[in-house]
Design a protein around this nucleic acid. Structure first.
Lengths: 222, 222, 222, 222
DNA sequence: TATGAATGAGCATTCATTCAT
DNA sequence: AATGAATGAATGCTCATTCAT
């Protein structure tokens, strides 16, 4: 019993240490993948940056592919905080069309800001680059990122429709339109110009125009 | 004289042969780059697929980078036929808002179809993937592709505005909105789902909605 | 604690093993460079001769250039024993000009013998051959080899001058003259006739003549 | 007959053209070999620099080795003008020891200047570098260059000895000593410091000291 | 005879992965 | 469990030489 519990304690320690190493590997690998891409990141570099031996890496992740997928999966799941932020915007109670306009503008702006974060852009480029080799990952990313954004917008619009503030026969289409009115141009530009994102003033203009066009098309009031 | 003219004939033949080889290399390389990406395409493979020796490849293109850039440049310049097609749509004379709606729908649809062509998508993914390593190329691509599309739309809208069919204080913004209303969702989806493009019915729906939303925002008639 | 000390033991062993491998690489590379020159020595050959993997070579020496420079540096530094030997000759106390003549002869002979060692000649040829590509190395070699030889001769001559045995207004010039009286011809010949060095009798003649000419020019006695 | 003579004319023309090409190849190759060494000079480069096709090179010189040897041979034979210049110095009639001192100084200086010519140094380095691979060439070079210089000095000294101006039991040794008193230090330094040669003032000092030491040892007058 | 292409090998360097200690 | 070494294959690139036209 004593030995057993001793073993258990040890294994708990070991587990913790293992988990720590795993964390270090994950962080190093993610940073490298985002910075240099999958192909140009070597296992040696990852191990070195993580401060562990290559064996340790291979013990935890059997493959380079596995390592990549697990890491990318993890990061992908992290879009929660973005969505959370958008949710608070979207949950603001609105009474009038003018209220709605303001919320839509704020929503467009926050969404744009979130999507223009450097590491979001890097991840996006990385996953697009490897979409051929890792189709499942790409699919998952799309579902957990862009699609969930659309879900959120859609459900908000449903509420506004119920309030009679907007009329939209195809909610999904409306959500999609709003999203790409807000992000399309900047995201596209950023994909081809690494490191370049629109200045705040430009972002504001885009957000305002997105809200305005959306309301013109779907707003019920006027 | 005889020898000189003989030399000239020979060199003309040689030039033709050289040009042919260059063509073969270009085609093989482009196909491989589009299919496998820059990093996973080897010069050996290119030479083999082109049916020439590696030396011949290196004589014509001093570098792998050079080869890639020259090829990508060439393809990028080829967006002319897409734009030409769009131009004919856009140049259709319109009298009423209903005419305009039809033209906008056709424009959105043609644009979407063009952009959903497999090799256009592949090229797009390829260039996004290598944007870090080849920023000039990415910039050029963006300018010659997306930006020229916007130019075309913008100038069409200017004419419609002059006709009093639409009112748009910021023409560039309006053009951009129309473009991403038309393409945003499908392009995004396609980037993450290689080989998947929307079915014709879906494309029609998207085009119709894009025209409708645009008109609601900018149409002056009703 | 146990694991820590265990780790340390391991790393000590590992260090020793690593050092051994490095030694093997160094020896193999030096031998090949001296025999075949820099350009005709391949990293594969070095690894094979050293009995290690190419990776091991590259882990220890990042480059072929680095490998070459570090090795050549190491060997260059090894001229100490030659100089040491010369120093003992030169430190022999001398009272008369006849003593001095004997010492000068012995000095010339020892110097000549040292410089005619096959691996000294090979190294000299190697470094001359690569002087364009590795100018720093060549400079260093010249400084640590020939120049230090001159230093030693010069300081000895200073003592003899202080003793009144010789008169030399320009000690450096005198030292240089003695050196090339002793070595010039043989060294030159050897550079162009790999493997050929003067026989002992010839060396003796040269040494005697060098001492004699030097004394005629700088000796103060007669 | 007419045709024959016509053929002969043609072949004369062809021969002349061939000789010209050979000349061009020779010049290009020599320049490249001297600048970059044997190993780093490619046949492609030679052909390109010569403005001829590789086939032409191979038709005239069956091998890279052959090409190198023939070229180096040719250049080596060209040391005549240096020797000629030295000969005129050496042939100056001398009556007194002071005359002789001046001639020796001039001789040392001219010799030094000749040997410090950049392309002489380059050739020397090139041949030393390849002495292992081309021993015959190295031997020939040594014989036609340094050795002939010694011959010339030796025969001059013989005349001076006959005049009673100097006394030298071993003329060859005396000649060699004078040569290396004059050149040794500078030549050695230059081998390890490509592009660096002593300034005129330093050359003058060395030449003066060489003559002085030589006269002290062998002059009969004082 | 001269040209471009081909051949076939070689080299420096890197990588993912596994082995031995 | 962790480290250094090894493996074995690949990659970009270059070269001397030969072929075909």
């Amino acid at each position: 019993m004593t030995t057993e519990s001793h073993d258990l304690e040890l294994s708990a320690l070991a587990q913790r240490r293992t988990a720590l190493k795993r964390q270090q590997i994950t962080e190093a690998a993610l940073s490298l993948f985002l910075r240099n891409g999958y192909g140009k990141t070597s296992m040696d570099q990852i191990a070195a940056d993580a401060g562990v031996s290559k064996q340790t890496v291979y013990k935890q992740f059997s493959d380079k592919e596995t390592l990549f997928q697990e890491i990318a999966r993890g990061v992908t799941a992290n879009s929660d905080h973005i969505l959370g932020e958008l949710a608070t915007v979207v949950d603001t109670p609105v009474g009038t069309t003018e209220d709605l306009r303001k919320v839509l503008q704020r929503l467009a702006r926050r969404y744009l800001d979130a999507v223009m974060e450097p590491h979001v852009l890097s991840l996006r480029r990385l996953i697009i680059a490897e979409a051929d080799q890792f189709p499942d990952l790409a699919h998952r990313y799309h579902q957990l990122g862009p699609e969930r954004g659309l879900d959120l917008i859609e459900s908000a619009q449903r509420r506004w429709a119920e309030q009679g503030l907007i009329v939209a026969p195809d909610l999904r289409m409306a959500a999609s339109q709003f999203a790409y009115l807000s992000l399309g141009s900047s995201q596209d530009h950023a994909m081809f110009h690494p490191g370049q994102t629109p200045k705040p003033a430009e972002r504001a203009r885009v957000a305002k125009a997105a809200a305005s066009t959306f309301l013109a098309a779907y707003g019920r009031d006027r």
